[in-house]
């Protein structure tokens, strides 16, 4: 039988040093082996803190995942939010459209405000209605974005601007949203790293938007403001990646920003 002279515990036969304090194991039973009551070691365990590290027993995530939380379920909270949004935005429509009809006898400015109200409602409600299915949300909102740009051009009787600016920019927004979603979906822990990817996407988008404007307006590419935006955003994204992977232990936004 082997013992640790400092900790007084029994050790396994194959070890040469105590796994607790790093002292050399001994075969003769030390006085500390009978330590009890209020006896404490005279010295600290020594600089062997690396000796006792975690075992290889993995703990299932579902054990703690069923903890009682709040009174309303997530689905109920979402339903309430969707109802509130529908009532608020519906009220806006019910006010603006009749006023326009009453004062002008036709749809004039209310076409634009209605498009804005409906678009905002959709972009706020669809993530709540289709929660947990990001690609479904994308399948609804991405085509709608192009449709909204098209309707805007139709309302202004300016289909040319849609083809020159609206269409390429909305396609770029959709494509970048798809790439950002795909990258974020691949992350095991979605925290500040997701924000960083979003910022990088924003930097690329600004370059594309300025490119589209330059080519259509002057026929030549001369990037200026978008480069400044990218130079500002990319280091911030880098800092967020650093924070996520090195500082806050890959904590999710849900944990970090819980109110």
């Amino acid at each position: 039988m082997k013992y640790c002279p400092r900790c007084g515990v029994e050790l396994e036969e194959q070890v040469d040093r105590c796994v607790l304090c790093g002292q050399l194991a001994v075969r003769t039973r030390p006085a500390t082996a009978d330590a009890a009551g209020l006896a404490y070691p005279k010295t600290p365990a020594g600089d062997v803190s690396g000796v006792a590290h975690g075992s290889d027993v993995e703990i299932g995530a579902d054990a703690f995942a069923r903890v009682v939380r709040d009174s309303l379920s997530e689905a109920e909270r979402r339903r309430v939010a969707v109802e509130l949004l529908a009532v608020s935005f519906g009220s806006a429509l019910l006010v603006t459209v009749p006023i326009d009809l009453f004062t002008h006898g036709a749809f004039t400015w209310s076409k634009f405000s209605s498009l804005g109200v409906v678009s905002t409602w959709l972009f706020l409600s669809i993530p709540l209605i289709l929660a947990g299915a990001p690609w479904l949300q994308y399948a609804v909102l991405a085509p709608y974005l192009i449709l909204a740009a098209f309707l805007l051009a139709v309302f202004r009787n300016d289909l040319g601007s849609f083809l020159r600016y609206g269409f390429p920019v909305t396609i770029a927004v959709d494509a970048l949203a798809a790439s950002t979603l795909a990258i974020v979906a691949a992350f095991r822990r979605k925290g500040l790293n997701a924000v960083a990817v979003f910022l990088c996407g924003l930097a690329v988008l600004s370059l594309f938007v300025e490119g589209a404007i330059d080519l259509n307006a002057s026929g030549a590419l001369s990037l200026d403001w978008s480069v400044i935006v990218a130079i500002a955003l990319v280091p911030v994204a880098g800092l967020l990646f650093h924070l996520h992977y090195r500082v806050v232990d890959q904590a999710s936004l849900r944990k970090l920003f819980r109110l």
């Binding site: 900790c7 404490y40 070691p41 365990a45 975690g54 993995e58 944990k255 970090l256 109110l259």
Partner: peptide, 26 residues
């Protein structure tokens, strides 16, 4: 113990704890 922006939180550990050496003081 985890530090959030507004609250602390408890982060489950995936590895089991192991015995440690007794300290000089309790």
């Amino acid at each position: 113990m985890g530090h959030g922006v507004f609250w602390h939180y408890l982060d489950p550990l995936r590895r089991a704890p192991v015995p440690e050496a007794e300290r000089v003081w309790p």
